[in-house]
Design a protein around this nucleic acid. Structure first.
Lengths: 201, 201
DNA sequence: TCACTCACATACGAGGCGTATGTCAAGAGG
DNA sequence: CCTCTTGACATACGCCTCGTATGTGAGTGA
């Protein structure tokens, strides 16, 4: 019973650091986030940081992986609740746009993450969000609803469109009204993937 | 004649600094670019930098504005050479994707720029690229070729799709083959804006 | 010629990162 | 129960970079 005492404490400290990093990176941005302040906020020092993670960038990696997993899970739920695959794809897009409204996701995953860690397409967990989108598109192609386009290409562009929509909405003075325009435009673009001009149920 | 001697020298030094910054930011990234090295590379010191620009961020602003203007000019030429408005829009998208292959544009305009300066939609010169795309879409709507979607929304999402395509292509092991897939997918998505399913000439 | 301006260089202070070193609790073994 | 080892974390140090305050010399007008 007393065997895992150290390991448990270490895991907890790791979690605390990641939690602190999520808020610090989200509010101040990666570059302006001080590791001294960040660690002190949870009662630790930079020593704990460099022991648990490779370096500052390693901490960002851990944060990105965690958020990526959460986003994938949320998108999975949205997709499964939709009455059809096609509507699921559209719902995913809308959900993605709305998620990017959250400062944490916007700042860490969409701005600093790519700038510091490089292209998201090469992230481990290889962008679980994209993976989900691609699986949906593949299924739609097999059902004959979507044109036989390259699955990865379609997924990436669709995600990219949703991403820029999200950034636009987030920076808008009136996010609410802009959100509607963005979602409409997203559905229009997505319909370009359809085999028939008529949109399916 | 001897009147503008100081002003001319200053303009030249500004240009030299911007040129040096373009290469430094492109090769090392904004965060890792040292202002000492950058200025020394053109025979100046940080004194010149902080006299000509607000700060490091100000230098990035100047670089971004310059590149933005160049991109807009190149896109304008591509668009004007196309045989029709619709094909011009597609050509613009392809050209945009190809431009993002250039490390300078990719790193500065697509990665570090947004991370450091904030959302590109609020940049002065307000993203000349987007402006051009929006004008084209507006014309296409007036001609009845494109659905009456929100012009800004469509333009932003289309640019976003092209952007993510570019990042994907740039990071690919075999950019050539991936480029084709990306362009195809872009055309498919763009066709979703059409009023008729059939693509116009 | 002389005073003034201004573009730029030099010098300084603050802060952040990464690492080398120290320290103390938790387990192992006798 | 005592000692030894391990390892998680704290402390201390050096290096680099940014931004600013101050110095300086060429250019300019009277």
């Amino acid at each position: 019973m007393a065997k895992g005492k150290r390991a448990a404490a270490m895991a907890e400290n790791r979690a605390k650091l990641i939690r602190a990093a999520r808020t610090a990176f989200a509010t101040q941005g990666y570059a302006d986030a001080s590791m001294d302040e960040l660690t002190a906020a949870v009662g630790l020092t930079r020593g704990a940081l460099y022991h648990n993670f490779e370096d500052k960038k390693g901490l960002l990696w851990a944060v990105v992986e965690q958020i990526d997993g959460e986003m994938a899970e949320r998108l999975r739920i949205v997709r499964e609740q939709a009455p059809s695959l096609w509507l699921g794809l559209l719902a995913e897009g809308s959900a993605y746009i709305e998620m990017a409204l959250e400062p944490e996701i916007q700042r860490i995953m969409l701005l600093d993450g790519p700038a510091v860690l490089g292209d998201p397409s090469k992230w481990p967990g290889e962008n679980a969000c994209l993976d989900i989108t691609m699986r949906t598109i593949r299924a739609l192609i097999e059902e004959g609803i979507v044109k036989p386009v390259d699955v990865e290409a379609a997924g990436r562009l669709l995600n990219g469109a949703a991403l820029s929509a999200a950034l636009w909405v987030a920076a808008a003075d009136d996010p609410k009204s802009v959100l509607n325009k963005a979602v409409d435009a997203f559905r229009a673009l997505a319909s370009g993937l359809l085999r028939e001009a008529r949109e399916p149920a």
